[in-house]
Simulated assay, not measured.
Amino acid sequence: MKLGIIRCMQTEDYCPGTSDFKAIRKKSGAFADVEGDINLVGFTSCGGCPGKKAALRARELVNRGVDTIAFASCIKKGVPIGFPCPHAEKMMELVQKEVGDRIKILDHTH
């Protein structure tokens, strides 16, 4: 798996992504069923509310070789700030439309 992660820009002050990286290393959470290696190609933010830059950033991740894009758990689950993104569903929909069906989308990481 060649992975790109999109995270919530609002959580950057609270979370350096360590739980995302741990889930990748341990193949837990969204990565529990992954066979073979996981190569983290990129780690970026949505660009801030309402996440309109996520599609452009996803396109760039694909240009750099990812075959899977995971939305960090801060977006869908609201971890660690306790507030899920109110734009999560629309953002994921726009990203999927941008990158097409050949790119797998994961709605969380850990």
Rank of each mutant, 00 (worst) to 15 (best):
A88W: 03
S73Y: 06
R25Q: 10
I81W: 00
I24T: 03
M9T: 07
P16E: 11
D101M: 07
G100N: 11
G29Y: 01
C46K: 10
K27R: 15
T109S: 09
I103S: 08
Y14M: 15
P86L: 06
D20F: 11
L61K: 04
E12W: 04
K26C: 10
I81G: 05
I69L: 06
M91A: 04
S28A: 14
C46P: 13
K52Q: 15
R64T: 12
T44K: 09
K53A: 15
S19Y: 09
C85K: 04
K26H: 13
C74G: 14
L106P: 09
D67E: 14
A30T: 02
D101A: 12
G78Y: 12
V79K: 10
K26S: 13
P86Y: 02
F31A: 05
G36L: 05
G65I: 02
M92Q: 09
M91N: 02
C46N: 15
R7N: 12
R7I: 11
G17E: 08
F71I: 06
A70T: 04
K22E: 04
K22R: 12
A70G: 06
E93R: 09
D33A: 09
S19A: 13
G51N: 08
A32H: 06
C46E: 14
A72N: 02
G48I: 00
T68M: 06
C74I: 08
D20W: 04
G42W: 01
A58V: 09
D107P: 14
G17Q: 09
M92L: 13
D67L: 05
M1D: 07
V79T: 07
K26W: 09
D107A: 05
S45F: 01
